[in-house]
Design a protein around this nucleic acid. Structure first.
Lengths: 210, 210
DNA sequence: AGTTGGCAGTAACAAAAGTTACAATTCAAA
DNA sequence: TTTGAATTGTAACTTTTGTTACTGCCAACT
């Protein structure tokens, strides 16, 4: 775990903090598709992402989903931060998008370190900033763009996160994450294919040029 | 200013911090409709809201607006926090919704106080939490609700913030903030009126029961 | 009083998105 | 091999939202 830490956080945290993380953190590996947090859960530890990716989803009362953003290497979950400090329940659902490695830090350390380490404070503030920015982008998408543009953004985003131009998703799965219907997704994907921008297969989509 | 501070923040900040704020902060009064921050501005000081309300707006490339949320008494601007620390430009526009009194704090104090005062750290984290929560609510609104429901929420929110069941807005102004067209707003307002939930006047709307 | 500009009401239409229904295909399990 | 479930394609239709155009009304100003 120490090597993981040094590889990913050595420029961010001072050595003493890396040591402490190594002492109290626990390594956790999750498989693609595995659920990390459910809406309403109490959060007891904070994740640092070593590798992989996690998708963060919002859900309304009817069970309709919406993808908010992805967490990647070096990220942490801003929602968790606030939940830990405020002792409130999770507002979001977190699911592993890829096989993912995390270091879990007990929440008690949170407050201790914010007083003790400047680098930790900066990291936490930086995380908040990134998450707020991503939320703004999500708002831009749903408020200012039509579904065809949102779909393109979604595919581009997915390609970037998975680092793979072959996207292994069904139309239904995409529809859930964009909060629309399968028929709409199929329709728009077909249009993109006819423009030569993607190729459609069963259970997967090949991105040609978006 | 000291009385303002003690009245609004005495349970939140320790006395020594109140003193410091009193030393370095400057009192600022803005009139309703006055612009506080424009998108792209660099932020040089952090506001603490003493009284009044500020609306936070997002805008896309075409100049289309969307109301994100209101700041009220005791709030601060989470966006400002991150902008200060990261030296980045503002992503949002801030306009006084009511006549408003603020205390402006130079950004240099930000980092100093996060190291020095636990209550300040908690306040900053709490602010982030509240803003993330409000952003989630905004996302819920535009992702999961139709325009008629969004309009009702908008009116309710406006009533709460201004503490007045008479809303002094034109249909066009409401349309801007919900990012729709004037005709749509007029149509839906008329429907609400015919249901007896509101009364329509020139330049204002009376909320009867929503 | 007459003019003007902003505001609101409404009809008619267009576009975007959502819904229902059904057929065709693929793939894995019985 | 057959069955059945999941996936995709597509047509037809509805609902929601956005657009254009025109009207009347009010208030301020000359």
């Amino acid at each position: 775990m120490l090597t993981d830490l040094k590889e990913n956080f050595t420029n961010i945290f001072e050595d003493a903090l890396i040591e402490e993380i190594n002492d109290v953190g626990t390594l956790k590996k999750v498989k693609e598709g595995e659920k990390l947090i459910e809406i309403g859960d109490y959060v007891r530890s904070m994740p640092l992402l070593i590798s992989g990716a996690i998708k963060i989803l919002r859900e309304d009362d009817d069970g309709d989903e919406l993808l908010l953003y992805f967490l990647e290497r070096g990220d942490t979950c801003a929602m968790t931060l606030t939940c830990c400090l405020g002792q409130t329940k999770s507002e979001i659902r977190a699911i592993a998008e890829l096989d993912t490695t995390l270091i879990m830090i007990p929440i008690q350390k949170m407050e201790e370190w914010t007083g003790k380490y400047k680098s930790w404070r900066n990291f936490v503030f930086q995380s908040y900033h990134e998450r707020l920015t991503e939320m703004l982008e999500t708002i831009d998408s749903i408020a200012f763009y039509n579904m065809d543009e949102r779909l393109v953004k979604y595919l581009q985003n997915k390609q970037k996160v998975t680092n793979d131009s072959l996207i292994n998703s069904t139309h239904q799965e995409i529809a859930y994450e964009l909060h629309t219907s399968r028929v709409v997704v199929s329709r728009l994907l077909k249009k993109l294919e006819s423009m030569g921008k993607i190729e459609l297969y069963r259970n997967s989509i090949k991105i040609v040029s978006l």
